[in-house]
Write a protein that binds this DNA or RNA. Structure first.
Lengths: 257, 257
DNA sequence: GAAAATGCGTTCGCTGGCGAACAGACAAGT
DNA sequence: ACTTGTCTGTTCGCCAGCGAACGCATTTTC
């Protein structure tokens, strides 16, 4: 059992959810891969309902069991889907960047989901109201197909994480997480604390610090205050488990024949 | 590392895959909940392509990375989706009974998936060729919706298992598995060995025997040779983790507002 | 009936990781 | 300057579970 201080993952400084919201203009095209893959006609259907939002670190996009009011198409940054247990522990079960969408339940008409969606690395994105998305879906078959495909792929990734959680040790899992994180953001400096890492990996904080220390002494990463810098990307891949490559591979080659 | 004897989950007695195949007749209506939920018009689209099959224990329906030739709608029995690692270990990541479908990748047009699908408890079902399913999908919007919804729900279940694998102990996980298994078959006698259980739970066989011994001494179950009998269902639910109820709840209440 | 295979129960040494605790480094605010 | 809060590094006792091994019972095969 964790202390009550860390039971809630992070106390939010009070900030209006609408901070930074503005309409998408043609001067600021999206970088979200799902939106980019849409045919122009369908993008035009969505566009009037898309709203630009900044996503500050640790902002919570939706809570387990609560209404999901928006779907988010990320431009940059990283969102974790997390399961919280009754005794205050937590594990990350999926990781979303600009390749996907936050709010998958909406893709099949559900308005609630069992996960917390929390911004791990600050970024930005376009959001759309649940109602607007649902009515758009009936006029956008390609979007529907893309989202359903993404739901399946995310399921595969979750399954791999399930196996990894059971079979692999913390050092390998830490390496995997750092790599998956770096794949989704530009920099090689990941602004994240060991405490947060421990909650993503479902491990104790000392275990994370220990594993991170080993990786640091091996010259693969560097532990700064609230920042992990990736020094030797290639070597880090070596010390990650097979799950890393497996999960990455799901983003393309699985389908079609 | 396991001994080479147990590396392959089970050597199959050579049996023709088509054993017991025959056409679905109106005298043998399906018990598969997905098929039963279809409007008659769409069921009629599928029916000429559905083929009855017996599913003997330990039959493998598809292998990771290999072509998926059929989708299966189970009538009775239980199929596990399993991830195999390079070093010969295995974990179950999902469990399918008559509520769903085996071959989810086909729902979005993929022909391969990363899991092994293996029959845990013998049963029967209706299968359909991948091609037939895909062309049927374009004329059966309700089927498409049902399958996509199932893909999402299965993803939620996998996520819960991912958390469970990380956070809960083997005794609780064993109880969860036995309950989930019994929910999907009629009897209270589960024909499964500790060895298989250990591969589903991603644990060592002695750990399973030990946990099963504790549950037996507590009067909750009875360990026979190749069979686990559930004696005190209610009490068994008590000793399972919260994940059991969570996973069950996904099969209904999550969606719609 | 004998031999072989299968499955369960149990033991034992070992280790990864937990949980609690404390010290020291750094950052921000006053 | 001092204080307070945050973050990392490290220690320590403890235990769940691993992996290998052995004995024994039951079932299957020949």
């Amino acid at each position: 059992m964790r202390s009550s201080k860390t039971r809630k993952i992070k106390k939010q400084p009070p900030q209006p959810v609408d901070a930074g919201a503005q309409t998408l203009t043609s001067e600021s095209p999206t970088q979200n891969l799902t939106l980019l893959a849409l045919p122009p006609r369908e993008l035009a259907v969505l566009e009037p309902h898309l709203e630009y939002v900044d996503l500050p670190q640790h902002q919570i996009l939706h809570e387990p069991g609560a209404r999901i009011d928006f779907a988010y198409f990320l431009n940059q940054g990283l969102v974790s889907l997390v399961i919280l247990t009754a005794d205050g522990k937590s594990v990350e079960v999926a990781l979303v960047g600009r390749e996907g969408i936050v709010g998958t339940p909406l893709a099949v008409g559900f308005r609630r989901g069992p996960h917390r969606a929390i911004v791990q690395i600050a970024g930005s994105g376009l959001r759309i109201k649940s109602d607007a998305l649902e009515s758009a879906l009936s006029h956008a078959p390609e979007l529907r197909a893309l989202l359903n495909r993404y739901v399946l792929i995310q399921g595969m990734q979750v399954a791999q994480i399930a196996a990894c959680n059971r079979l692999h040790e913390i050092e390998q899992r830490l390496a995997r997480w750092l790599l998956m994180c770096q794949d989704r953001i530009a920099s090689d400096e990941l602004p994240i604390t060991h405490e947060f890492l421990s909650q993503m990996l479902g491990a104790g904080r000392p275990s994370v610090s220990l594993a991170a220390g080993i990786l640091q002494r091996a010259g693969l990463i560097e532990n700064l205050r609230g920042v992990v810098r990736i020094v030797q990307r290639k070597a880090l891949e070596e010390s990650a488990c097979e799950c890393y490559r497996a999960i990455q591979s799901f983003n393309f080659g699985v389908g079609t024949s």
